[in-house]
């Protein structure tokens, strides 16, 4: 039983901290998140307005990351955009993972008609590209806010984890310890959440990170198409305004460059965290 890791969480954490990819990813991620969060809490809200800085300034002493054509500092906008984008990722990934896990657990443990129905549901959602739905919904619900956006993305993030959790549970529930639990009088729900769920935690963690990446990506994609939260600032909306107001044409590279580089770094860091988690919880991958 190599997968005895869940019984030793401290060991798991130690193993994670020894994983260079995880440490590098987490480091970059924390750096971006902390800088943005501290910025959003400390920056004077009055600095967010148009015309607080001279317009079209390249990065320099007046504004660290330059300003846009309306005289707004890019750095100040980033202190709103990054926390908002992270919020979308967090909410959507939480909804997707929890919903997916719940459906997967239930479908996998209770075979028969429940499983058949849920499986069909999962298959239907898996086979229809979610971006299509997202574009449709976002176009219909114009004027969405950051939270609504996160909700919309989240409710399309569950099918993939659901299917994988179901497959795992199908295998786990045939193991002897489940039999023992059943014989000792535990109910089905109890067995699912007390006996089986702990075995899935690491996998769910990795999936969560993955869903986080996907959600930030979906938000950016929709926003760049003009379907984002028009009244709030996210990384996607920052790119959208930059593109819409001719930043590329007028060579205001700092305007579109800042959110693009930040997005790349966010993705890279989350990807590294994901690989790290994956390697630690699945020792067969180590050293590959």
């Amino acid at each position: 039983m190599t997968a005895a890791v869940p019984t030793r969480p401290s060991g798991f954490l130690a193993a994670l901290l020894r994983n260079r990819k995880f440490v590098a990813g987490a480091g970059i991620f924390l750096l971006i998140a902390v800088v943005a969060l501290v910025g959003s809490l400390t920056v004077d809200p009055r600095l967010r307005g148009a015309g607080r800085f001279p317009p079209r300034q390249p990065p320099g002493t007046a504004a660290i990351l330059g300003t846009d054509t309306l005289g707004r500092s890019i750095a100040v906008q980033m202190t709103q955009a990054v926390p908002n984008s992270l919020q979308v990722g967090l909410i959507a990934a939480l909804i997707g993972t929890l919903l997916g896990a719940a459906i997967g657990f239930i479908s996998g443990y209770f075979s028969g008609i429940v499983d058949a129905l849920l499986r069909i549901l999962i298959d239907v959602f898996l086979s229809v590209p979610s971006l299509l739905f997202l574009i449709l919904i976002a176009a219909l619900v114009r004027g969405v806010g950051v939270r609504t956006m996160a909700l919309i993305i989240g409710i399309f993030a569950w099918p993939s984890p659901a299917r994988q959790v179901r497959a795992q549970i199908l295998s786990l529930k045939e193991r002897p310890f489940v039999e023992v639990a059943r014989l000792s009088g535990m109910s089905g729900i109890e067995i699912v959440f007390r006996e089986l769920a702990p075995h899935m935690l690491q996998w769910l963690g990795a999936n969560f990170v993955n869903a986080f990446i996907a959600a930030i990506l979906a938000e950016s994609g929709l926003s760049i198409l003009g379907l984002g939260p028009q009244r709030e600032m996210t990384l996607g909306m920052l790119i959208y305004w930059a593109l819409n107001y001719g930043a590329v044409l007028q060579n205001l590279w700092w305007w579109w460059g800042t959110p693009v580089v930040t997005l790349i770094l966010l993705f890279l860091s989350l990807y590294l965290i994901h690989i790290g988690l994956d390697e630690v919880s699945n020792p067969r991958l180590q050293g590959r």
Partner: peptide, 16 residues
């Protein structure tokens, strides 16, 4: 996911 990252960047640079 990584390929998608690149896609977003490509989208962002579409104007270029």
């Amino acid at each position: 996911a990584f390929v998608l990252v690149l896609l977003v960047v490509a989208m962002a640079l579409g104007g270029c």
